[in-house]
Every structure is written in C-alpha cells, then in structure tokens.
C-alpha cells in the first residue's frame, strides 16, 4: 500500500519533469519538431546589415514567414550576405522581390521585410534576392540631412 503511493508519487514527479522539458522546448523556445523539413533557403546581399542578428524574423506584409539563420561577409562584393530560411508554404515569391532591413518601433529589434515583385519567375531554394534595401543607420541619415541643408544654403 505505502509502496504504491510512493511509486505513483515518483511517477507523477518524473512525468511533471518531462512535461516541463517539453513545454520549455515547444512553447517557450518555439522549437518546432522537424523544422528543417518544410523550409527553403534564400540569400540576400545588403550594403549594411547593421543590427540584424541571427534568429531575427523575416516578414512579409507583417506576417512572419521565416527567420535569419546566418550572416556573413561576401569577400568579393564587400557586402553582407544574409541567409534566410522561409516556410515552404510561401514558395511563390517572384524573383525580383525586394528585401529590406526594418526596425520594429524607434528602438526595437531589426528584422527583414520582403515585398513582392512582378516577375513570373519564382525564387527557388538557394536563390538570391538582388533588390535589397539596407538597414537604416541613424548616423548616415543625420549626415545626409546635414549635407542637404549645406547644399541648399550654397545654392541660395
């Protein structure tokens, strides 16, 4: 009798532990089982990726459709190459789609936004998005603004 409550208690405890691990994996860290199966890879080159990190979201029309899996420097073109994994069910992206690095809110995190192009031909696995728009760098923006006002002054 006493042994039985003991064993049931321990069994429930072990179950609770395993359930906790599953919750941590699926619910908290969003680990999807067999995630590698239904995604495909797309590359994009940016002049400046400043602030974008691995695991950032890739969105289209505000909907998350994938994530950034790697960022490295392309030695030949001196641009930042971003590797993205997109969900298989969004496989109808035209080849001239645009990728831009956007910011969530004024100080929020960076993410990649994709807007649709008009070509018939579609992006395949391992394809590259050529039309890109780099990260908005505040310093450059301010620099441009100052330059513009100087130019205006001299024109007058």
């Amino acid at each position: 009798m006493q042994n039985r409550t003991l064993e049931v208690g321990v069994g429930l405890f072990l179950l609770a532990g395993m359930l906790a691990l599953m919750l941590l994996a699926l619910r908290v860290s969003g680990l999807a089982v067999g995630a590698g199966e239904d995604t495909y890879k797309v590359y994009a080159h940016f002049d400046n990726i400043a602030g974008l990190t691995v695991r950032s979201k890739v969105t289209m029309a505000g909907v998350s459709i994938g994530k950034v899996t790697a960022i490295d420097l392309d030695r030949d073109s001196y641009t930042g190459r971003v590797t993205m994994e997109l969900n298989k069910d969004v496989d109808n992206l035209p080849i001239d789609s645009t990728a831009s690095i956007l910011t969530a809110g004024l100080l929020g995190e960076k993410y990649v936004g994709i807007s649709v192009g008009g070509e018939e031909e579609l992006l395949a696995d391992g394809g590259t998005i050529h039309d890109t728009q780099s990260s908005l760098v505040l310093e450059e923006l301010i620099g441009k603004f100052l330059l513009n006002s100087v130019n205006k002054d001299s024109a007058n």
Binding site: L24, A25, R27, V28, S29, G30, R55
Partner: peptide, 11 residues
C-alpha cells in the same frame, strides 16, 4: 519569447 529563447543556448 519564442523568438529570443533558443533551445540549445538557453534551455
């Protein structure tokens, strides 16, 4: 939460 928590690194 899911975007920032990595299973291998954090859990």
């Amino acid at each position: 939460m899911q975007n920032s928590v990595s299973f291998t690194d954090d859990v």
